[in-house]
Design a protein around this nucleic acid. Structure first.
Lengths: 150, 150
DNA sequence: TCTATTTAAGAGTAATTTGTCTTAAATATA
DNA sequence: TATATTTAAGACAAATTACTCTTAAATAGA
């Protein structure tokens, strides 16, 4: 799997938040129900995003989470790195520690350029772009497809 | 992680076999020692490759494993698919089952083209190509770098 | 101030991946 | 044929990832 499940869940949730940005907090309960993700599990994942200030949270009634800046300023890469770390973008295809230009493995050159394309793709795409696309074309972000962008 | 550890180990072992192709069997013991991989674990992994006829094995003294055809005819993709399956090349970036042109997620188009590049890279590279490169440039296929292509 | 609501934090469980160990089956060679 | 060597197979253990549950802390609103 390219992205961990946690990361995928984080992306789905932040896409939803980006589609809906009005300054209000959205409760994690609501997110978890709309996205069909376990509430407690999603809570833990989103805590990682608030920990790196990609999101803000507020406890209590009317509380919840929201993006800490415009979804246009948050890229898919920001979310991926916050949850899965840099591994995907730095790791050797043969799993060798310290694989790089100085001490490469046979696959290094090829793999490094593929990795860069992945990075470029994630880095050049904002949450808002994807959320707008999903909204406009009514695309799925859940398995059952019951989710609607409203 | 893009590739599982099993897959990485399988790649390292088959690269070594491709570098050394003379029709003889190489014992898994020797592979595991040269590559610094647990013998029993490597045995299990290589069984998956013999199961799909990418390798042949022979029990008993002088036994071991060898590629079932020239390493020029075996691509990295063959090994990856045999061990990790097609997931990497078919899976949705958001983990949605059945994500495709008819029922895409917002990331689908972008991701599908990146996935195709990964496939293209793995498919167009043979074990022998990588083994020769490693041999010629004396590149690592183990963490400690003690391995030598001889 | 009290209460209901909501996130935070941490312990605990389940599933998957990774790795180990033992025994069985095959085979080359003496 | 007997023996040593090697893969095959399956049970088992450890580590990681995925998920659940309980309790604490914060806060809006009555």
């Amino acid at each position: 799997m390219l992205l961990s499940k946690s990361c995928v869940y984080g992306l789905r949730a932040t896409l939803l938040l980006a589609s809906n940005q009005n300054g209000n907090y959205t409760s994690i309960k609501e997110l978890s129900e709309k996205l069909d993700i376990s509430f407690h599990f999603l809570t833990k994942i989103l805590q990682q995003l608030t920990a790196v200030d990609l999101m803000e949270s507020l406890k209590g009634p009317k509380g919840g989470v929201r993006l800490s800046k415009s979804g246009e300023e948050i890229t898919l890469l920001d979310i991926v790195i916050a949850i899965d770390g840099e591994d995907l973008l730095t790791e050797c295809a043969l799993g060798l520690p310290g694989c790089g230009i100085e001490k490469p493995c046979p696959l290094h050159d090829m793999w490094a350029s593929t990795r860069d394309e992945i990075r470029e793709m994630l880095e050049s795409t904002s949450l808002t772009q994807m959320a707008n696309k999903g909204k406009k074309m009514n695309l799925r972000i859940t398995a059952d497809g019951k989710f609607t962008w409203e």
